[in-house]
Nucleic acid binder design. Structure first.
Lengths: 240, 240
DNA sequence: ACTCAATTCTGAGTACACTCAATATCGAGG
DNA sequence: CCTCGATATTGAGTGTACTCAGAATTGAGT
């Protein structure tokens, strides 16, 4: 009944009645899902509630998202996309420790900066975030999830780039190790950085959930996350 | 309700008829669940099938495992426990790269050794493993899961210990950093090692699942996991 | 205006995880 | 052996995610 569409996709333009109706329906479903997930949580929202709120039949919802989890991913994709569009200037390190120099050094700061929005978002929607994290890492391959993964991939690429930068710096352990020596056979140079980025993301998702379950307050979570980044940047040998 | 220890098989000993019947039922359910999960997979096995195979009513299964996932965790706990009991000598690094020296050095080898059985097990039961990994990292707190987590915790402690050892060695980056200097305020010295261990476990679980979904062959997975460990041991600065 | 094939929508139906009130079973005390 | 409280078992019942065969809608072609 209530069409509080927002977020995105104005139907507008020159489209057939059919396409327009579809876009509208999609928007209604998205809005209904988002609202209900936010106010009642993921588990306690039923698909039929979403359908009712979006004023469509239950089966219709499944045409736009094949699964309840996919519906969640659809919402996340929309939110993430909106955030990306709105953010030219990346929010200045909301939690990168201001004073205290840590083993990871500046590179770690620059990475903390990158994941800061993710951390903030996951704190804000902690119940949903647990589901999202779970599905990002272990979900089945489906279209809406794929789109969320694309966002994650982009984030990981940025992290990898900064890891790569840091490698040349003094901060990185065995700074001399550069390209030569070590390592398994011939691989692309960025492979380690990419692995590091994936490791950081997986670690952050797991650690955020862990602290949620243990009800650890935000302050300490920051410390934990920061240490996690330091570990990847500088290794256990260096981290305090 | 819950008869503490037992862990599994052999009702044996002097117990009331009731206790014995309970243990037998538990064993039957465990065996049925394991067999069905193995041959048909987790999702495609229904609770009523398990009940039928174990020759108990459906409701009875739920008395021993409050949830389908809990039933899976019950199976995993039993398997893991059996493995632990059977293993005095830890299986010599099934996948720790034999030749090639990597950035992580010997410490990484010693850690690879520790997670090797986990990797082997997850490869063997890849479909189930995905569910297990997912529940270990993101599941709700329930008794059988808790027991599995205890196993994970023990593994993490061992990993942490080896990380700690490695810290003094030359292999660890900035070997000099020892205890003094750096880091956030006063914390237990093992905190970083513990965090590193958790990071490795989370990373391995995620990476194994990732390669399962992308159908990457075992060889390459070994390389990826090895690199992951190297990263935590020596940091991105060092890793090739 | 009138087909008509293609697409979209619909909601009753299905499968299955989980619940719970009733029932069966046990064993300690008489 | 009998009684009775405690505990374990049972299976019909419930809620809900998901399916699918038919109904409705659309727009291109005539």
């Amino acid at each position: 009944m209530d069409t509080r569409d927002d977020t995105e996709l104005a139907p507008s333009a020159t489209l057939g009645r059919r396409e327009r109706a579809k876009a509208e329906k999609r928007a209604r479903i998205l809005a209904a899902a988002r609202a209900l997930f936010e106010e009642r949580g993921f588990e306690r929202t039923s698909m039929s509630e979403v359908a009712r709120a979006a004023d469509v039949a239950e089966g219709t919802v499944f045409q736009y998202a094949a699964t309840k989890v996919e519906l969640l991913m659809m919402v996340v994709d929309a939110l993430w996309g909106a955030h990306e569009r709105a953010t030219t200037t990346p929010s200045l390190s909301a939690f990168a420790a201001p004073g205290a120099a840590t083993a990871g050094g500046e590179t770690a700061d620059r990475i903390a900066e990158l994941i800061s929005p993710l951390v903030t978002a996951m704190r804000r929607w902690s119940e949903l975030a647990a589901w999202v994290a779970r599905e990002i890492l272990f979900g089945a391959d489906m279209p809406h999830r794929r789109r969320v993964l694309d966002h994650v991939d982009r984030l990981e690429e940025k992290i990898a780039a900064r890891l790569q930068d840091g490698r040349a710096d003094a901060s990185g352990a065995i700074g001399a190790a550069r390209d030569g020596a070590t390592g398994t056979a011939g691989e692309e140079p960025g492979a380690a950085a990419a692995a590091g980025a994936r490791l950081i993301v997986a670690g952050v998702l797991a650690e955020l959930n862990r602290s949620r379950q243990r009800r650890i307050d935000g302050e300490n979570v920051d410390v934990v996350l920061r240490r996690l980044i330091d570990l990847v940047v500088a290794g256990a040998g260096a981290a305090r």
